[in-house]
Design a protein around this nucleic acid. Structure first.
Length: 278
DNA sequence: ATGCCAAATGTAATTTGA
């Protein structure tokens, strides 16, 4: 069973390219971020014709998360407990909730597609929002694990944090910038301290997952590693392979992010090598 | 080798991204 995450930076702008990759790589479940559309605007047909069902959470042209899956999805959850909002205060004195978190269960594995707030600048309210959002996500995940002991879970997505200096091409460029600040890194580390495993890094897989469109960042390999799959030990035990699909940054109309994929040792109804019993 | 900013909105310029 193959599971992946990809910040697609508009699903409408590159639906064919996304589905081509899904088919070519034999992916069963894809968590997408930055779909940048509402459900009624989502290019459903190209996914459905390739055999994928969809769960979509999009409120406007910003953010938006979704799942495409060849396997049945259940327990679909929009957002998490006490997820902070952002923007102009509503009539009930709360802040609008953004489309940044979607949870599903596939083959008894809990999966989240997450688009962590950018933060913008260290002094910006969006930065405070980012840190609060991450802490609430951590707490909600810990609570879920406490009530579902032994259940495999993975948090997948664009964390908008480069956890280590090697996760950006030049730390000097990020002096005073978001994504590398100590509070952001502490917020990321808190998930690991809770026992989650950075699935790709733990297997020695290095490399960036994002390159800015500007200034020849990709040809010069000036990128950032900000997309992750963080799994519980029970999820980690299922992983037989993991990869960062750098080639998806090449060619015609790429996203500025590339997919991160894991292969799990989980037999599904789609496998054609299911042992026959006589 | 990769390739010199892109997408949505809306139809010009702004917001967002990181």
């Amino acid at each position: 069973m193959r599971v992946a995450t990809w910040n697609v930076n508009s699903v409408r702008a590159r639906s064919a390219r996304i589905v081509d990759w899904l088919v070519r790589e034999d992916v069963d479940v894809l968590g997408m971020q930055e779909i940048k559309c509402k459900p009624e605007q989502f290019p459903r047909e190209v996914f459905e014709e390739a055999g994928y069902e969809l769960e979509i959470h999009g409120l406007n042209q910003w953010n938006g998360v979704a799942f495409a899956s060849r396997l049945p999805m259940s327990e679909v959850t929009v957002g998490f407990d006490e997820m902070p909002g952002f923007g102009k205060e509503l009539e009930d004195a709360t802040l609008p909730l953004e489309a940044r978190a979607l949870g599903i269960t596939v083959e008894d594995i809990r999966l989240w597609s997450l688009y962590v707030p950018n933060g913008r600048e260290l002094t910006h309210p969006h930065y405070t929002y980012k840190l609060a959002w991450l802490e609430r996500l951590r707490a909600a995940t810990a609570a879920w694990r406490a009530s579902n002991p032994g259940a495999p879970l993975a948090l997948m997505g664009d964390f908008n944090i480069a956890p280590r200096d090697i996760d950006v091409w030049d730390m000097a460029v990020f002096d005073g910038a978001t994504h590398v600040s100590a509070p952001e890194r502490a917020a990321f580390q808190a998930f690991l301290d809770d026992g989650l495993v950075d699935i790709t890094r733990d297997r020695g897989i290095e490399g960036y997952t994002y390159w800015d469109y500007q200034q020849l960042r990709f040809p010069k390999n000036e990128g950032m590693r900000i997309d992750f799959i963080l799994g519980t030990p029970e999820f980690d035990e299922l992983v037989v392979d993991a990869s960062i699909h750098r080639d998806e940054r090449k060619g015609e109309a790429p996203s500025d992010h590339v997919p991160v994929m894991v292969e799990l040792d989980v037999a599904t109804s789609l496998d054609d090598d299911v042992p026959m019993i006589f």
